[in-house]
Simulated scan of single mutants.
Amino acid sequence: MIRIAFSITLLLVIQMAFGQTTSKPLRVGVVGLVHSHVHGILNKTFKQTGQSDIQIVGIAEPNRELAERFAKQYGYSMSLVYPTIAEMLDKTKPEAVTDFGQIVDHKKTVEACAPRGIHVMVEKPLATSFADAKQMEALARKHNIQVLTNYETTWYGSNHKAYAIANTEKSIGDLRKIVVHDGHEGPKEIGVNKEFLDWLTDPATNGAGALFDFGCYGANLSTWLMHNQRPVSVMAVTQQIKPDIYPKVDDEATIIVTYPKTQTIIQASWNWPFARKDMEVYGQTGYVHTVDGKRMRVRLKNDKQEWTTEAVQADAPAGDPFAYLAKLIRGETKPDELTSLENNMIVMEILDAARQSAKTGKAVALKQKL
């Protein structure tokens, strides 16, 4: 008995030393397969070897042909697939849901999950309107669930190291200007699948074009860097440079977000010559630029020239959104501000104002809360 007890203790010590957990994988339901970001969770769950922190217990997707196509690609059983969210939730009892459907349907997912006490992670942005976001927020508060928004850039070590330089270490003085560039050559140009392209280029299902698709990244990062401060005003200009390809939505957008002593410029585009997600943060006495998920350029007050550095994955809150989701629900990590509902309510307020500004040609003043 002593030998057995010693062996169990030794195993636990080894697991702790290597950061392993004895927790069961988080039971996750997938809602929708029409957003191409779904390949991340399908690959993690069905293709990667070794113990996973999540287990897909059900998929809600009414498009049977699409579900079968992915089943062949990833090897999952079609017995996991249900035609409606309600049936999937009731039959499989997930602890959390990840939404890879149309942005406009995020509210329906929260409406189905919240009364059942099921946590929700949606792909960016949170909603297609601030009004929908407020209803989602009310449901989350009422039923005490997490409603998280996933951005690729949340898991960039460079962004978190830039935040530390600017806000934790305060190495560049008070923030004065933030410039965020996001986008690519265009969804059709990079070859997204038809199911994704159809709703991504429809203002009713996506909220807008590049304005929402990539403008949300800058709004998310700016809100984070500004400690969830609501801006004073929002001004936006959009263009249809390729109306023959994108007749319903903008493909070029610039948003100016004004704070009392800081300005953020968000450049969202489906016209970049190559894909990019980078950021410039300027303070009174220095700056920090992120080049990609790792590489950075920095110049501080007494530096004669800028210098380069690299972030590591450990600078980010987790290696991927699903590992983070599992740890958060298990109480094994603290909430991350970038995915939080508080941050993304402000993001939606900015995007809503930007869409209105682009239509009217006027800046939109945000009412300040007392």
Rank of each mutant, 00 (worst) to 15 (best):
M1A: 12
I2H: 11
R3N: 12
I4V: 05
I8M: 07
L11C: 08
L12W: 15
Q15E: 09
M16P: 02
M16V: 09
F18H: 08
T21F: 09
T22F: 11
P25G: 02
R27C: 01
G29W: 06
V30T: 12
S36F: 13
H37T: 00
L42E: 07
L42F: 05
K44Q: 15
K47M: 15
Q48T: 06
T49N: 14
Q51G: 11
Q51F: 11
D53R: 12
I54H: 04
I56G: 07
I59K: 14
A60W: 06
E61C: 04
A67P: 03
F70H: 07
Q73D: 11
Y76S: 06
S77E: 11
S77A: 08
L80V: 07
V81N: 08
I85H: 10
A86L: 10
K91A: 15
T92R: 04
K93T: 13
P94C: 05
A96S: 15
V97I: 03
F100L: 06
F100S: 09
V104K: 12
V110F: 09
P115F: 02
G117W: 02
I118G: 14
I118F: 02
V122S: 11
P125M: 08
P125Q: 12
F130P: 08
L139A: 08
A140F: 06
V147I: 04
V147L: 14
L148S: 06
T149D: 11
T153S: 10
T154P: 05
T154K: 00
G157L: 00
S158D: 05
H160Q: 02
H160V: 02
T168I: 05
E169C: 03
E169I: 10
S171W: 05
D174K: 14
K177D: 08
H184E: 03
E185R: 12
K194D: 15
E195P: 10
F196W: 05
D202A: 02
A204W: 04
N206H: 10
G207H: 07
G207I: 00
A210T: 00
F214E: 01
G218K: 00
L225E: 08
M226D: 07
M226T: 13
R230G: 01
V232Q: 11
S233A: 06
S233R: 00
S233D: 01
V234R: 01
T238V: 13
P243D: 12
D244H: 08
K248Q: 13
D251G: 09
A253R: 08
I255L: 15
V257T: 00
P260H: 06
K261S: 11
T264R: 07
I265L: 15
W272M: 04
P273T: 01
F274K: 12
M279Y: 12
G286A: 00
H289I: 10
D292V: 04
D292N: 15
R295V: 00
R295M: 04
R295P: 09
K301S: 15
Q305S: 12
W307N: 13
T308H: 05
T308Y: 12
V312R: 12
D315C: 03
A316I: 00
G319W: 01
D320S: 10
G331N: 05
E332D: 14
K334T: 14
E337N: 14
L341N: 08
N343W: 03
N343A: 07
N344I: 05
V347S: 13
L351W: 09
R355C: 01
A358G: 00
V364K: 04
Q368L: 05
L370P: 03
